[in-house]
Amino acid sequence: MAVWDDLTGQDDAIAIFKAAAAGGSRSGAAGSTAVSGSAMTHSWLITGPPGSGRSNLAFAFATALLSPGTPEGDLAAQRQVEARTHPDLAVLSTERVIISIEEVRSLVASSQFSPSVGRYRVMIIEDADRMSERTSNVLLKALEEPPERTVWILCAPSDADLIPTIRSRVRTVRLRVPSVADVARLIERRDGVDSVAAERAARHAQSHIGMAHRLATNEEARRRRDDTLRLALDIRTVSSAVQAAATMLEIAGADAKAITEERDAEEREHALRSLGIEPGGTIPPALRSQMRQLEEDQKRRATRSLRDGIDRILVDLLSLYRDVMMVQLGSSSELVNLELRDRLDLLSTHTSPAATLAAMDAIATARERIESNVAPALALEAMLTSILRGATGKGTTQ
Rank of each mutant, 00 (worst) to 15 (best):
H270E: 14
D5E: 15
Q78W: 12
K141S: 06
S289H: 07
S372C: 03
I101W: 06
I46T: 07
D316Q: 13
Q298W: 09
R304F: 11
A181Y: 01
H270G: 01
V336D: 01
D5Q: 14
A377I: 14
R200D: 05
V117I: 11
A254G: 15
V324Y: 05
A358F: 03
P71W: 10
L384E: 01
R307T: 07
D5F: 03
R167Q: 14
T351C: 12
R300F: 06
D342S: 14
R190N: 03
I387E: 01
Q80D: 09
G276H: 05
I251L: 15
T8R: 12
L378W: 10
Q293P: 00
T385E: 14
A221K: 03
V104G: 07
T150W: 13
A359D: 07
V173N: 03
V170K: 04
R200W: 03
R367Q: 08
S240F: 01
A160E: 15
R79K: 15
T392P: 12
G330L: 10
L357P: 01
R105P: 03
E72T: 10
E188H: 11
E295I: 08
F113Y: 13
L329E: 12
R301N: 08
L45F: 11
S67H: 11
T247N: 00
S240W: 02
P279G: 04
T94V: 06
R169Q: 10
D323T: 07
R203D: 04
M326F: 12
G53I: 12
H204M: 02
A201V: 04
L229V: 05
P50I: 02
T150V: 15
Q78E: 14
E219T: 13
I277T: 03
R222C: 10
I16K: 07
A109W: 00
L139H: 08
S207V: 09
G69L: 10
R190F: 02
G9S: 07
A355M: 10
G73A: 13
E220R: 14
Q112F: 12
D127Q: 14
T356Q: 08
A15F: 02
L340S: 03
Q78C: 09
L275H: 02
R224F: 02
H208F: 05
S132G: 05
E262R: 15
R292C: 00
I251G: 01
I163E: 09
I99H: 01
L335C: 08
A265D: 08
R322T: 01
T237W: 06
G309R: 04
G276W: 09
A15C: 00
D129T: 00
S333Q: 15
V170G: 12
P353F: 00
R224A: 02
T47Y: 08
I235Q: 06
N218P: 00
A13R: 07
V91A: 04
T303D: 15
R190L: 08
A205T: 08
A232I: 13
A142G: 05
I387A: 04
A77L: 06
T70L: 04
F61K: 04
D11I: 07
S38G: 13
A355G: 11
D6E: 14
A254T: 02
A241R: 04
Q78R: 15
A21P: 07
G280T: 05
R222Y: 00
I363C: 04
R312C: 00
Q243R: 12
Q290I: 02
I166D: 06
